[in-house]
Design a protein around this nucleic acid. Structure first.
Length: 146
DNA sequence: GCCAACGTTGGC
DNA sequence: GCCAACGTTGGC
């Protein structure tokens, strides 16, 4: 799950403990949160738009999917006038902090290893939430030294 | 329903 | 800061 650290970082999550993953306005990313994620699932926190782009920590899904409140807030940049409380368009989950990697795993490090060639992070370039296989996940934890 | 125009993301 | 990739919008 990507976030620009200027907007929200792994350190912010460490401090907050838990956060609502608000603001996703892409159907595919939404579908992953709505359909694929279950309470207790682990997820990787990816810092985008910084040098170097890296996986910086681990978190855990801690709610069922529910409507993103910002879609109903006219003052929010994430307001969606085509959505309604009775038929909400945007669903999300909350995640809680598990750990921050002492050794972040850089995008470059993943690219150097052909094991990760098929990783959705690379296949679906700009998607803010992509799926990770169990094998990829475990190898990334190893690379992070945990 | 097609597709050009447009806007955004995010690596580089 | 550039620009490729790609999703969305809206005219027709």
């Amino acid at each position: 799950m990507k976030s620009e650290p200027d907007a929200y970082s792994i350190d912010d999550l460490k401090q907050d403990g838990q956060v609502r993953w608000s603001g996703v306005r892409n159907y595919e990313a939404r579908n992953i949160m709505r359909d694929k994620m279950n309470v207790g699932d682990r997820a990787l926190f990816y810092h985008s738009n910084v040098k170097p782009p890296s996986i910086v920590g681990e978190m855990e899904v801690c709610t069922e999917p529910y409507p993103d409140p910002l879609q109903f807030d006219p003052d929010s940049k994430y307001f969606d006038e085509k959505s309604s409380e009775s038929d909400p368009r945007w669903q999300l989950i909350d995640v809680k902090f598990i750990q921050k990697f002492e050794k972040p795993v850089t995008r470059d490090a993943l690219k150097e290893d052909s094991f990760f060639d098929e990783m959705q992070l690379f296949k679906r370039n700009r998607l803010s939430i992509t799926s990770v296989t169990k094998e990829e996940y475990e190898k990334i934890l190893k690379m992070a030294g945990v």
